[in-house]
Amino acid sequence: MAWRAKQRAAALVDSPYFKLNATAKESKHDNDVVVLLYNDGYLVSGGDEGKIKIWTQDLDHVATIDAHPVNVYSLAVLGDTLYSCSNDGTLKAWNWGTWDLKKTILEKQQNDIIKVYTDDDKLYASNDQGELFVFEDEQLTASYYLHEDIADLLIIGSLVFNARNVDVSVTEMMGPPRYTYMSRGAMIGRFPIRRVGQYVCFLDRSARNIFVHMTSKEDKFKRVYHIKAHDMTISAMAALPGQEHIMVSGGFDRIIKAWDLNTSKNIGRIDVGVCINDICGGENGQVYISSNEGYLARLDCTFP
């Protein structure tokens, strides 16, 4: 029994492959940092006080945008434009670099705009009632009603992976002239949902374990791994830039873990001392993490 206890204690030692580097000290968000996005040398953070903040790679403050009167739910970037959405029912566009308002694309919506996403030069926005809006050149070209709430989504080509509380559904969007859609299947699972290398990853219903699935309908979205990941609720996942077969996860247990999706094995961990709200990739070998009380930090990862 003593030998087993020593084994467990050894397993809890922080990995030397993780280094907690820069942390934001000045001009922090007032409360929870809800969502992160990294693009072109800048980290963008959205808070539940409605502000968007811009940071350098080393987390020096650059600018603050008074974006929404309430929570910033999601961020995306396409070309020279940053997009944000909120439970104020708006989708807004901001000029990248000058950070001023370009236009309000959706406003006075009766439902919360939950997610904004970009893929293949298209902009997508979804609300909590299951509507998915598609924009090209910021003009609405199509809308789909998925008949179910959308907590998080991932878009790969014409496929929409919609993650809810108990299931993940896959819908294929059809193009012009009719812009219809077809259900391609459903899987047990819940949000968040992320693409990591060749796989799509989301949580099981307990929110403590991770399902790893194929991304194509030809593979029938087959489950590849069921990873027993954390002892408490997982809130965030991201691919590690430069090593996209490595997934980084974190949540309420205050521990960041790294997983090799070639083997499904845990290859590193670090106790960061805060509950994780979001994780996003930065430059190669770097991820950013956020928490409450304005906490932002960068992890440098040196996996062999």
Score class of each variant (00 low, 15 high):
218 E>I: 06
74 S>T: 03
220 K>R: 13
16 P>Y: 05
231 D>C: 04
15 S>F: 09
100 D>S: 13
197 G>A: 03
145 Y>S: 04
182 M>D: 13
113 I>L: 12
86 S>D: 04
210 I>C: 12
199 Y>F: 15
151 A>C: 12
88 D>M: 07
73 Y>M: 09
114 I>L: 13
31 N>E: 11
69 P>I: 02
15 S>T: 11
9 A>Q: 13
184 R>M: 11
232 M>R: 09
13 V>Y: 02
125 A>S: 15
194 R>Y: 09
240 L>D: 08
205 R>W: 03
179 Y>A: 06
287 V>H: 04
48 D>Q: 14
7 Q>S: 12
235 S>D: 13
134 V>G: 01
164 R>N: 14
232 M>H: 13
72 V>L: 03
86 S>A: 13
171 T>K: 04
91 L>S: 03
193 I>A: 11
231 D>I: 01
248 V>R: 06
213 H>W: 06
174 M>I: 12
168 V>N: 05
233 T>E: 14
1 M>D: 13
59 L>S: 05
94 W>G: 01
79 G>I: 03
44 V>F: 02
192 P>G: 02
298 R>A: 04
156 I>W: 02
2 A>G: 06
172 E>V: 08
49 E>H: 03
254 R>E: 14
152 D>N: 11
108 K>R: 13
37 L>R: 10
46 G>I: 00
255 I>T: 15
183 S>Q: 14
132 L>E: 10
115 K>M: 07
216 S>E: 10
105 I>R: 11
5 A>R: 14
162 N>W: 09
1 M>I: 09
171 T>M: 12
146 L>D: 11
240 L>M: 10
70 V>L: 04
216 S>T: 15
276 I>H: 02
223 R>Y: 07
98 T>V: 11
233 T>S: 10
133 F>A: 01
134 V>S: 04
124 Y>F: 14
2 A>D: 10
104 T>Y: 09
274 V>Y: 03
153 L>P: 00
87 N>S: 11
227 I>H: 03
225 Y>E: 10
121 D>M: 13
298 R>P: 01
275 C>A: 11
227 I>E: 04
45 S>M: 00
134 V>K: 04
237 M>C: 09
217 K>A: 14
285 G>R: 06
291 S>R: 00
215 T>N: 05
137 D>E: 15
